[in-house]
Each structure stands twice: as structure tokens, then as C-alpha cells.
């Protein structure tokens, strides 16, 4: 373990103003109350390359984002094997030039992934600008938060 390695980082990704895409940020905001410094929010105000520059300093990174899977609104996907995420064809929602999955792939290619990266995707349906979060996605938040507590305490 590197001397400056920190235990875990929770990354909430999304856009507060695009309905279900806000889910990653809302969960991260909730978790920030408990973990403070160990939570980073990647929204329209922070660029992704900044994130991959720092996350290889962490033993565990948990990334939460909305996904467009086309079925089962509120369904929670969990990926620990990044190649499975890449193969899944699931699209994490991104307003950036280079999407979240692409950045994860790029980090992998450059040998900059954290030791463990867990990606949670919550299936959404409403990504309109100014839209509201769907009830099924809200419910998924309630189910996902205890799982994340369990991950970091394991």
C-alpha cells in the first residue's frame, strides 16, 4: 500500500437538473453527511479527468450514476469487474464529451484505476432538462444507501 493511500472514495456522478440523472449526486450528498472528506461529487462543475488523476490513490472507489438500460426503472446494477461493465453495453448518463464508461476504460488503459472500483448504476427513465426524479429511482436510493455503508465497512 502506498503511504498516502486513503481507504475509500465515494463518487456521485450526474446532473441535478436532468431528472433521474440527479440520483448519483443525491446519494453522494446524503453520504457526505456521514463520510465528509471521502465523498466527491462529479457533476457539471467538475471534470472527469481530474477524478481519474486522483482516484488511484484510493484502495476502494465506489461510483454511483444513473443508467439508461431501457428496462426496470429503479433496478440497481453493481459492477466490480470493469470488463463486465464495458461488455454490458449499459450507458451511464453523461453530459461530458467523454462518457463515464469511456473515462473508466481510459483510466484502465493508462493503468490509473484504483485498486478496487465498484460501479453502481441505477436505471432511470426521465432525463429531461428540468425533470423530476422518478418515484422508482427514489426508492432505489433508499435500497442502495445501506448497501454502500456495508461496502465501506466490509
Amino acid at each position: 500500500m502506498k503511504g498516502n493511500e486513503r481507504k475509500f472514495l465515494i463518487v456521485g456522478v450526474g446532473n441535478l437538473y436532468r431528472g433521474d440523472d440527479s440520483v448519483g449526486i443525491l446519494i453522494a450528498r446524503y453520504l457526505r453527511r456521514c463520510f465528509k472528506e471521502s465523498v466527491k461529487i462529479v457533476d457539471i462543475d467538475i471534470s472527469f479527468d481530474e477524478l481519474i488523476d486522483i482516484w488511484d490513490d484510493f484502495e476502494l472507489v465506489i461510483l454511483i450514476d444513473a443508467v439508461r438500460s431501457g428496462r426496470g426503472v429503479g433496478k440497481i446494477y453493481r459492477f466490480e469487474d470493469i470488463s463486465e461493465l464495458l461488455k454490458s453495453g449499459l450507458k451511464l448518463i453523461s453530459s461530458h464529451h467523454v462518457g463515464v464508461v469511456e473515462y473508466i476504460e481510459l483510466a484502465k488503459m493508462l493503468g490509473k484505476l484504483p485498486k478496487r472500483l465498484i460501479v453502481y448504476g441505477i436505471s432511470g427513465e426521465n432525463f429531461d432538462v428540468g425533470g423530476f426524479i422518478s418515484p422508482a429511482v427514489k426508492d432505489a436510493c433508499r435500497r442502495l444507501i445501506p448497501k454502500i455503508f456495508a461496502e465501506v465497512k466490509a
Binding site: 471534470s47 479527468d49 481530474e50 481519474i52 488523476d53 467523454v98 469511456e102 476504460e105 481510459l106 488503459m109 493508462l110 493503468g111
Partner: peptide
């Protein structure tokens, strides 16, 4: 097709480009 495919063959260039961008940031 994209920078990810390019990074396989040009990892140093892409790393330096990310560092350059970060300096601008």
C-alpha cells in the same frame, strides 16, 4: 475510433495530454 483505442498505442502521449489539460485547469 477514439482516444481510448489511441491510448493503447500512445499511453505516454495521452498521459501527458491529461497532465497538460490539468495545468490549464
Amino acid at each position: 475510433e477514439d482516444v481510448i483505442q489511441m491510448a493503447k498505442d500512445y499511453p505516454d502521449l495521452v498521459k501527458k495530454a491529461l497532465r497538460l489539460k490539468k495545468i490549464g485547469n
